[in-house]
Amino acid sequence: MHKARKLEVMKRIGLKIAIMAIVASAAPVWAGDDENPGVRNCTWCHGTSAQGYMVAPRLAGQRAQYIESQLRSFHEHTRDNPFSKQYMWGAVAALGPREARDLAIYFASLVPKAANDGDRDLAARGRTIYLDGIPEANIVSCYACHGPNAEGVRDIPRLGGLAYFYLKGRLEQWGQGYHSGVESPMPLVARHLGPDEIEALASYLSFVK
């Protein structure tokens, strides 16, 4: 990183920490420190500014409560799809609840960028399913839980702007019997989705800012 650019980033992050110290009673001391080994352990796979990279999804802007719940699921091996097993079980093995919480708050505070990598032609249909569901086929409206702009709330994740292949994979995996947490409504939601619906939804969501 260039020196000037880095300085600017540090300044921004300094400000972010100040804001976080006000918002969250316990701001992580190390949060935002680029060189911090805690954050680097994660961005190594999750990409620069945690915007997602290859099979590791974007964490930037994700709901803190959701990130925390997933870190717990990885830790307890409840989230059990192949990539989780392969990458995340190890990544969180030594992570305590306090560190997990601090990381969650930090990643949630980063501004997310949309992946924009779905099929544009399917986006309109995806939007209709997202908002209205397909009641005749017992497909529920995603909007009821994930919000009008797919922004999520509490431990319900932001979906807007996640990568097409990640979204598609997640929606397929519930149908294949993988889990992500206890008492999640998502296995029931996904049971009724066919391949066409999944592609349309994942396409639409990849463009949502």
């Binding site: 009641p135 017992n138 909007y143 009821a144 839980c145 009008p148 709330v153 008492e183 409504p185 029931l188």
Partner: peptide, 24 residues
């Protein structure tokens, strides 16, 4: 049976209600 499952996806798996983006 399928329709009940559909209702319970949002209204809670035993109909106890659910806090989504909207309270259900």
């Amino acid at each position: 049976v399928a329709k009940l499952e559909y209702c319970k996806t949002c209204h809670g798996l035993s109909g106890q209600g659910y806090l989504g983006y909207f309270p259900m």
